[in-house]
Design a protein around this nucleic acid. Sequence first.
DNA 1: GCAAAAGTGTTAGTCTTACACCCATGA
DNA 2: TCATGGGTGTAAGACTAACACTTTTGC
Lengths: 243, 243
Amino acid sequence: MKDFDIEQYLPHLSIDCVIFGYQGKELKILIAKSRFGKRSWNLPGGYIRKTESIEKAASRILNEKTSLKKIYLEQFKVFGDKDRIVKSSLKKTLAQELHKFNPKIFTTKVIDWMTSRFVCIGYYALVDIQKVQPQVGDFDELLEWRSINDIPQMMHDHTEITLEALEALRQNFDQKLIGFNLLPDIFTMKELQELYEAVFERTFSNNNFQKKMLDLNVLVRLEKKYTGAQNKAPYLYQFNRKK
Amino acid sequence: MKDFDIEQYLPHLSIDCVIFGYQGKELKILIAKSRFGKRSWNLPGGYIRKTESIEKAASRILNEKTSLKKIYLEQFKVFGDKDRIVKSSLKKTLAQELHKFNPKIFTTKVIDWMTSRFVCIGYYALVDIQKVQPQVGDFDELLEWRSINDIPQMMHDHTEITLEALEALRQNFDQKLIGFNLLPDIFTMKELQELYEAVFERTFSNNNFQKKMLDLNVLVRLEKKYTGAQNKAPYLYQFNRKK
DNA sequence: GCAAAAGTGTTAGTCTTACACCCATGA
DNA sequence: TCATGGGTGTAAGACTAACACTTTTGC
């Protein structure tokens, strides 16, 4: 572990990211299991350098976890309860373990800084899950993609943050045509429909869905996809980013 | 002016409020002219006490400016460019004037604190303009309601913040039925329509507008309003907050 | 030819928009 | 009785949802 210089970062302000991916007809988020404290789950997050914008900070944090360069990112809410971190039951255990782990880095000063009050800016990210290579960070035991229907209990208010992110995602999904960020570059209409079904937790009828999507004028129809199955081969589509 | 103890507040984090009101068929915002620096216009804002939530802080700041207790408030975006305040052309003049004005309060330490990098949480508020008694603060020369079509140039990125607030307001206006916060308790359909026309900067046809509003099932029709004009007396309506 | 799944067409229903009309009010 | 502006009715059009149907594919 490198040094951790609290002077580099804005105090009392953090970023937490809800990273959405899509796989096996399920909407998933990337969460981390902590190496410390009660080994509880938490959202990837980090601090803001004094020399970078909050958007840059969010990008950097995401890049550290996913090793992706360009990521679709959206700020969705600030969480600023006065007891957010301070009153957490984990605080004490965490502080002790961090100090024991590396007393040179985790001095009392650093631990006080880390466990002080934090206002947290919530971002959600949409990624092509195939392209992500999760990077286990210094504080993580492991990273895991978990279905939004199977989210474990998480640290602090991270469960609440996740639910708010999901709500914001649904709100923006149609309006901003952001769904394509969750898919590979090329996909079938069925796959796109299944993504929508996973996000909204409901079914759509195939013909009306197709009509709606094609009417948006953002899809380019490519050649057919012959899978070897004994049925009509579906067309492949690509998102037309120029529009 | 009272003391200003920077230790009470979270550093590098501020709140700016875009306070919307409605009067004379115009959507307006409450802005302040600074006593210091280049006497430029700015949005009402303030800092967050270490002992209060960000929502409480926003409420408090709004209460200080409007003397209203319960205000409709919505967080809409965080502004976190790295040079937000620091690179402002006003910084130097402001610092000098503040120090000259009251060197006991505005020590170098305080001024450094105030002119350091700030991440700003944007809130917008909706108020019944009739009920507001604007309170000129320590930093204000005056407060003024200005039409959204007549916003002067403002400090830092406050013009951008205002535009983003307006966009968020329009986005939420229909969905969350928040318009009623801008009107008196009792109003005519015409008045409600004119409010919508001011917000969206377009006209609506009276019958379709009425139909749409009544279909929402949130309006209670009261007695007629006899104005003395030689035409049919319009009904008065009230927003049904129970629903 | 047959089953499976993709793709298309048609209709009914709902919501939106535009136009026309009637009604209460006070001079 | 008339001008004014408030309130209502209706029909056309657009959009949505539900149903049925045809086409392609490999066995």
